[in-house]
């Protein structure tokens, strides 16, 4: 069991720290910089959808409703904590 955990740790850690050495050695042209600066937004998109529909796997609309409330709260400039709590409360009420 210990070896499984150590194996998982190694294959997770190497892709994480390798870029620290890469950016130390390489200078990127400006288009690569722009690409890397867009990565957070792309990652957010890919992490939100379609994953959000699995909040309640047998009822994908639950996640969508919670997400819509989160969008509305964030749109009106609510603090991120309130966005999170609002979405939790929504899903709680929808699944009552």
């Amino acid at each position: 069991m210990m070896w499984v955990i150590i194996g998982m740790a190694i294959v997770t850690a190497v892709p994480r720290f390798l870029p620290a050495f890469i950016v130390d050695k390489l200078n990127f042209p400006s288009w690569v910089d722009r690409w890397l600066n867009a990565i957070p937004y792309a990652a957010l998109g890919a992490l939100i959808f379609p994953g959000i529909m699995t909040v309640k796997p047998d009822a994908p609309h639950v996640g969508i409703i919670g997400g819509t409330v989160a969008i509305a709260l964030a749109w009106f400039g609510m603090n991120i904590i309130l966005v999170v709590i609002g979405a939790i409360a929504t899903v709680f009420l929808v699944t009552l």
Partner: peptide, 23 residues
């Protein structure tokens, strides 16, 4: 009940991060 509802938390956080930048 609550733990299932909290499954939305990280998605809501991602949304809460994305929206201000979108605006």
């Amino acid at each position: 009940r609550l733990s299932q509802s909290m499954g939305i938390a990280l998605y809501a956080m991602f949304i809460g991060l994305l929206i201000p930048s979108v605006k």
